[in-house]
């Protein structure tokens, strides 16, 4: 069962890139994103679906350092040993990671938490030595910082501390059709009223509550939504379907639009697990505001949120 699911997911990826120039590399990239490595069976599927020989696909997969044929751990640590980073003791940093994780470069810890690899130049030479962890760059890394970097990676580099992080702020949202507020004051997520929506997927129909903090990805829902599922979103008041005109820039699923009090539009991706969202601000940013000449508030670059409440 698992095997067949894997191959159908692979087939989908193959079909997507079939007619592209350099499509094979795009396919392998996407498969690797899905599984964190390139399973043998996936390579075979790519070969048979594209009508190429397995050895050709295998040749591509082994040519690029980016691809891995062995399962990788949850977190990928890449230490740069390019020329610039090398002369700034990148090798010492790599050694320190090896010692602390107890593995050599190119290996994965037995608990499948960390994979360590060395790479040749991450394109940020001036700030070396560079370490890349799960897509996050650390520059000027010193030996003493290694344990801290690992600790951060364990806690999850994408996790945002909603109480202290400056990038997180509350937004008040309403339905773009009926203009009713979507906030539910009786249900708190991250200590703020949650955004209530109705969703349906796979013949299930229920409520979904999102954190109203912009930047937080916390949600609660009536039914467990499987990863990768694309759900349909509805306004709980007027029951109109919320579909945007644009597709998600990351995964191509439809976007769900909601209006911001004071002007502007937030769109979130309708695929579970995809964290993509966009915000088009109209009034909230002072430089776009019609009242900016008469307004007495300070006009910081990021705008004053809910300024109408202060006036």
């Amino acid at each position: 069962m698992k095997e067949s699911r894997l191959s159908s997911a692979t087939e989908e990826i193959v079909q997507k890139h079939e007619n592209e120039l350099g499509g094979v590399i795009a396919m392998l990239e996407e498969i690797q994103l899905q599984h964190s490595y390139l399973p043998e069976s996936a390579l075979k599927t790519v070969a048979s679906e594209t009508g190429r020989s397995l050895v050709e696909i295998y040749g591509v997969a082994t040519f690029y350092k980016y691809f891995s044929l062995k399962p990788r751990g949850e977190h990928l640590v890449s230490v740069c040993l390019g020329t610039a980073c090398h002369v700034r003791q990148g090798a010492l940093i790599a050694k320190e990671f090896e010692d602390q994780l107890g593995i050599r470069a190119g290996e994965t810890t037995p608990d499948k938490k960390f994979s360590l690899e060395t790479v040749n130049c991450l394109g940020a030479c001036a700030r070396g030595p560079i370490v890349l962890v799960d897509g996050h760059y650390f520059s000027n890394v010193k030996k003493t910082q290694v344990s801290q970097i690992l600790k951060k990676a364990r806690e999850g580099l994408d996790a945002i501390d909603v109480t202290t992080d400056q990038r997180v702020f509350p937004v008040k949202l309403r339905c773009p059709h009926c203009n009713h507020s979507l906030l539910d004051p009786n249900y708190l997520i991250d200590n703020h009223p949650a955004v209530r929506l109705t969703i349906s997927f796979a013949s299930k129909h229920g409520w979904l509550r999102l954190s109203s903090l912009y930047g937080s990805n916390n949600i609660k829902s009536e039914y467990e939504i499987p990863m990768n599922t694309i759900a349909d979103f509805f306004c709980p008041h007027c029951h109109a379907e919320l579909v945007g005109s644009s597709a998600c820039p990351v995964c191509n699923a439809p976007m769900v639009p909601m209006t911001i009090y004071g002007g502007g539009l937030i769109q979130i991706c309708s695929r579970r697990g995809c964290k993509s969202h966009t915000m088009d601000l109209v009034n909230s940013i002072c430089i776009n505001c019609d009242n900016r000449h008469t307004c007495k508030l300070m006009k910081p670059e990021g705008g004053v949120w809910f300024c109408e409440e202060y006036i």
Binding site: S53, L54, V55, E56, Y58, T62
Partner: peptide
């Protein structure tokens, strides 16, 4: 046959 080929670099 395409049974063998170059691998790695």
């Amino acid at each position: 046959a395409k049974a063998i080929g170059f691998r790695g670099r």
